[in-house]
Design a protein around this nucleic acid. Structure first.
Length: 125
DNA sequence: ATTCTAACA
DNA sequence: TGTTAGGA
């Protein structure tokens, strides 16, 4: 399939698909005319990359993580770095969760103090 | 119509 | 990351 199709099917922009390839995360075949030719396997990997990207992982982290997920057999060479990397990610997420909870209570506080008679008539639709 | 590379403001 | 130029 061409880049446009896989883009729609995995939710990664064409721009990002080319970027990830340059980073070595995806290696689609090329047609005679130089167009990228993605396989179903590439699509599945792209979907995994999508999830990792959504999870906030860097290309670096994905490089360590993907090999461990792809191969059915323990290719645990990169998994040492992987463990450290994932622990670091969890730490960062914990920090962000803490920060967000502070923001949340802050806003909930404002909401609680908000007068009840501030509603304005809605415009017609 | 679609994609390719490279580079821009 | 978007966008654009200039080709294929």
């Amino acid at each position: 399939m061409q880049i446009g199709e896989i883009s729609q099917r995995c939710g990664i922009t064409v721009r990002m698909l080319r970027f990830y390839e340059a980073e070595g995360l995806l290696q689609p075949h090329r047609t005679g005319s130089g167009y990228r030719d993605y396989s179903e396997a590439d699509l599945e990997e792209a979907k995994r990359i999508k999830q990792l990207a959504d999870a906030g992982l860097t290309v670096e982290a994905m490089h360590d993580l993907l090999p461990c997920i792809i191969s059915p057999k323990p290719t645990f060479h990169p998994c040492d770095r992987l463990r450290a990397r994932l622990e670091g990610e969890v730490a960062k997420l914990d920090q962000r969760l803490a920060d967000m909870e502070r923001s949340r209570s802050q806003i909930v506080g404002y909401l609680a103090d908000l007068p009840v008679d501030t509603l304005v008539p809605m415009s017609q639709d």
